[in-house]
Design a protein around this nucleic acid. Structure first.
Lengths: 290, 290
DNA sequence: GCCGTCATGAAAAGAAATTTTCAGCGGATG
DNA sequence: CATCCGCTGAAAATTTCTTTTCATGACGGC
């Protein structure tokens, strides 16, 4: 058997390219909640995927199986392997990987971080920050450090699409005073400051506050000194089985905020996104002849 | 549903007293390697237990199921519950928040993405990429798109500390050819390309491959066209209850890779980090008097 | 705009599963 | 020892699932 070593999931992936529309649709449905979704009869999975039963037969044959029963037998074997594997019993993450694989250890850590962070987090804080960022009258300024700069940029990039008056502070802290100069009372400064807290962040926060800006800080559980100056602070768990801290949960909060802000003014955002699409198209036209 | 609380296993146990010899034999067979042993057809499990098919029908009806299909449906549900990560299933994340709060919905989605991604991910791919990135003889180049640029930058920032010969491609794609010009055979190009795949990525990948570079792609489950040119591809689930895609799981893989690479050459990395600390100190000294 | 090719699902045909029927068998009882 | 009762599985009947066939419609090339 050729499929002895490869999982059904692998086989599907390696064939994704040669699948037709309906077959892709079916493949998606199977991979979603794999491998349990393939447990039922051919009729059931065809219905779940919204395709006809012949499509199922054609696809599994295209994948190299003799027929649907053959396909399902392989799936059953995989389910069996997954369930009866003693390591898999508790936390089954990456299959075929020993429980000590870095991916599994990381997954465990991230899960713990997420859970702890959400337990500690006051949803009122979240909602208040979302409201603050949704307020079009307030200018937004994003600042990050050496490592967290990427998070600030990610946040900024999204907010820039959603609303006007957003600014990303250059990574070069010597230029920060110029940004502060432009801040008005009521503007919001979003600061990322984690572990090895950077001295410049406190200076930035102090200066911004003097100008009447509201400050939102993303920091770790121990708290950046800048958090003391902040109106709102997110204390995120950042522990990882690594010499580095994990930014995964921080990014999680950021994405949730992006959605919350966007959602609060969806009509306006939609218009902006449409316009942006148009601008992208134009840019392409500019570029094509070049 | 009455069986929502009781498992099939419970039901069998509670009926053990009223079962006949052949039925007990069947029950034993089912409980042995439960619940996988009940995955097949009635014929299969009858054969495995060494009883006739009518015995199976009679027993499941005695247990309170309408018939074999009904019995099997319950078993499938249990298999699903066993396989699905128990933590991901738990009802509420942030306490005191309604289950429909954006934070909770996001947490559910992210956990699903993580689980699915790790299920689909081949750990060999991960290990191979880690080895590739650990090889000091290879230069590393990081490229991202409009949104994924921040991920590329995050990855780059860490790798830059861990090892020499790392380059972040400017976000301005018109300058990319100059980077390709400097690539040598065996160098590694790490590309982030998700959804709205950017045409330039394919051009970049093609050009880099002509220079003999190895290509690693981070993409979504549908696959960037650049993935076809890649030696290794990570297909990450990016679905979120949002108009935007989620980068959380992608960042997760990136962080795990960072740790894997660092771990493989910890001694050297330690030296580099010490030196870096020294350099930071010096910079501060420069600045203080100013 | 016509033609060929291919994807797709409805429906029929075929195969397999599930359920029912029924006869044999073995142990219990008088 | 005869009889009864209920367990058991072979085999038939029934239902359901799986596969094949074929008509339709979409798409691209000429």
């Amino acid at each position: 058997m050729t499929t002895a070593s490869k999982t059904v999931s692998d086989v599907i992936h390696s064939h994704l390219g040669v699948l037709t529309r309906a077959e892709k649709q079916l493949a998606e449905s199977l991979l979603d909640n794999y491998p349990v979704s393939g447990l039922g009869s051919i009729t059931t999975i065809a219905e779940n995927a919204g395709v006809s039963t012949p499509t199922v037969v054609r696809m599994v044959q295209k994948l190299g199986f003799k027929g649907y029963p053959d396909f399902q037998a392989h799936l059953h074997q995989e389910v069996e392997a997954t369930i009866s594997n003693p390591i898999a019993k508790h936390d089954r993450w990456a299959q075929n990987a020993p429980g000590t694989h870095i991916l599994n250890r990381f997954a465990d850590a991230i899960m713990g971080n997420l859970r702890q962070t959400l337990t500690d987090l006051d949803t009122a804080t979240f909602d208040n920050v979302a409201a603050l960022l949704s307020d079009r009258k307030r200018g937004l300024y994003f600042a990050g450090g050496r490592i967290t700069g990427a998070l600030a940029e990610y946040f900024f990039t999204h907010m820039q699409v959603i609303r006007p008056a957003t600014t990303l502070l250059s990574s070069n802290s010597s230029s920060w005073p110029q940004y502060v100069l432009n801040m008005n009372a009521g503007d919001v400064l979003i600061i990322f400051d984690i572990r090895r807290y950077e001295q410049e962040m406190v200076s930035l926060a102090t200066a911004a506050r003097k100008r009447g800006a509201e400050i939102v800080v993303f920091t770790d559980q121990w708290g950046s000194p800048a958090a003391k100056l902040a109106r709102h602070a997110f204390r995120v768990r950042i522990e990882a089985p690594s010499a580095w801290d994990s930014s995964v949960v921080t990014l999680f909060i950021v994405e949730a905020l992006i959605e919350a802000v966007q959602n609060s003014t969806w009509d306006e955002t939609k218009e902006r996104m449409k316009t942006l699409e148009g601008l992208f198209e134009q840019t392409k036209l500019f570029r094509k002849p070049g």
